[in-house]
Design a protein around this nucleic acid. Structure first.
Lengths: 342, 342
DNA sequence: AGAGTTAATGTAAGCGGTTACATTCGTCAA
DNA sequence: TTGACGAATGTAACCGCTTACATTAACTCT
């Protein structure tokens, strides 16, 4: 594999000259191999290899009015939940000609709107956005976008185009139902960074309580602060002070659950006898904790990979088969922290 | 703020016509405002606003032979350590005209080399790469790169250009010294995903033991598997079975430390009396855990933000002030898990 | 007043690909 | 033999900006 030393800036022109054809033929060999004769195709491939030619994405994008990037807009960099999604996205994009461009909205709808505008300007191959709570302007932009758009993390009515996720409402109801089934009669709720998505989880919690005729009392504690393990401890402390009758908690995510567990230990509350704990997302540590912690497993990596696949499908289908919703569901992972009934 | 409905594809041409100037003037108003008259500048700004014009990055990159992207190559998507770095990078890039392009090498040097090649093809404004263990080919590419290159996460000799990080070796020595100072005489080592960077931490651990005349015995346990909380538990189990005299552990990262803590609890080992635990990175949960866990704090967000700043500096400096190394240091955060001496 | 500056703007040639259209050439049916 | 046709390749315009160079107008200076 002798690569040219001088591959500083090999252009298509150089490859063409090397083979003795026009640049158009080289371009075709790359984009529509089937229209180029077998003989030339192999010669061109060899020249590309030996010269170490790599196409200039900017020139490509400009000429073809379409860039080979898949735009992804997520609310947070640091949140583990989204790193798993990213992992799925990058894995699925690997090996394709598409590259991923990431943007972070920091949970700010307006910032998300601007990112959408910015990304659309690049005429991306596809766009992946998080959730269903865009601003009206953003919705309009997505509606008019001339590329596949996939909404991830949630399912819901009227997707812009395609959608892959699960129902946060149903997941929360199921988790709450699990607590009740385990014999807990006074479940509480711990939430942080209450955005529309987590609000739907709260709604699921409430509706499930109501379905069992349980009053929520003063057992719902949440804050708009970003979630953390420390915060989980604080929230549990608040909750127990305000509502000592609480015998179980459903936490909006696993960090809060872990923090609550530590706080429970500090307070000498026995888990699961005195306090049942259920988290959300089922991150790896949940099974490893002592005691192991019940959580709602969600398929984050699959969501990311699936979103990319949906875009690739849309590209080949051509036909915009609207209303394409993929529900990945969720799974309650019962562990020691809620095992009161066995 | 009445945005045009038809901002589908407003180009510079449209802005120019709207104001009654040539596109060159509009372009200059955007890139070198100081050479355009005050009057035109404001008119142009107004037109841009009212038409909702956004420049086409591909065209810009092609014409200027320089794209406004900062390339970043990290080994892992999911590792928390790097999400903090990314957070710093994105924050620092926000508000500038530069956008971030991320690539993941999955800890594979060859994959990193390809990414470098790919990124360089875009003639980026700057490049951020992780660590100092590139392949020879990759090193050559970086050396010839015609943009600032910043190596992050580590300090060391002979940076390609600039460098921001800390000494993993020194940090590990300091952590080990802390354990010894707390009266632990048989410290062990838990490692996972042993790459060159973590190898240097192991070296620090060993040298510090030697400096105190302590034999490492059979107390160094590590694996090439990716790190996880679960794995931390397994490793501690292995370690205690192989070397029951162990009275403290230095873990390559906080996940392992947390897992080890849970395993210690399962084994009824008292922390910190029977077993001292020290992690690495000081993630948020360390202080919130029960018992709270000692760790080595590293400045990851600052590393990311600092790297971007170094690039911006290099751009304005012009002069390649070689050998520019920023050592952010580290800090031992003593907590309950190693508090035997007080 | 005339020449020389300087500041502000316009003109037009690219940047490196893509692609519609033109051209060439061999094949085949009439 | 000849024209039609299809496959393979070439020609050249164009994608939306940037920028070197040319041009013009307004001053400054002797």
């Amino acid at each position: 594999m002798k690569k040219s030393i001088e591959n500083k800036s090999v252009k298509m022109r150089d490859v063409a000259d090397h083979v003795g054809v026009s640049v158009a033929t080289v371009s075709r060999a790359l984009r529509n191999p089937e229209v180029v004769s077998e003989a030339l195709r192999t010669k061109i491939a060899a020249a590309i290899e030996s010269l170490g030619y790599l196409p200039d994405p900017a020139a490509r994008a400009l000429a073809s009015t379409r860039s080979d990037v898949i735009g992804v807009i997520l609310p947070s960099v640091t949140n583990n939940v989204f790193s798993a999604v990213m992992d799925g996205i990058y894995s699925a994009a690997e090996g394709t000609r598409y590259s991923v461009q990431l943007g972070y909205s920091r949970y700010a709808p307006l910032s998300e709107e601007n990112l959408i505008r910015l990304f659309l300007r690049q005429r991306p191959t596809g766009l992946i956005v998080t959730g269903i709570d865009q601003t009206d302007a953003a919705k309009a932009l997505l509606q008019e976008a001339d590329c596949p758009v996939v909404q991830i993390m949630e399912t819901g009515p009227a997707p812009h185009d395609r959608m892959i996720g699960f129902s946060h409402y149903q997941a929360a109801r199921a988790a709450t139902a699990h607590l009740i089934a385990q014999g807990y009669s006074q479940p509480g709720f711990l939430g942080a960074r209450m955005d529309p998505r987590t609000q739907r989880r709260l709604q699921g919690f409430r509706d499930e309580l109501r379905a069992h005729g349980i009053d929520e009392g003063r057992r719902v504690h949440s804050t708009t602060y970003p979630s953390s393990v420390t915060l989980g401890g604080h929230l549990l402390a608040q909750l127990m002070d305000a509502a000592p009758e609480t015998d179980a908690i459903f936490c909006i995510n696993d960090d809060l659950a872990l923090g609550a567990m530590f706080e429970a230990q500090r307070r000498n509350l026995r888990i699961p006898q005195d306090l049942g704990i259920c988290g959300f997302n089922d991150m790896e540590m949940m099974g490893a904790a002592e005691p192991s912690l019940t959580s709602v497993r969600t398929f984050r990596r699959e969501m990311g990979a699936g979103a990319v696949q949906l875009i690739l499908d849309a590209l080949s289908d051509g036909a915009r088969s609207d209303g394409n919703i993929v529900d990945l569901g969720f799974e309650i992972m019962p562990r020691h922290s809620t095992r009161r009934n066995s």
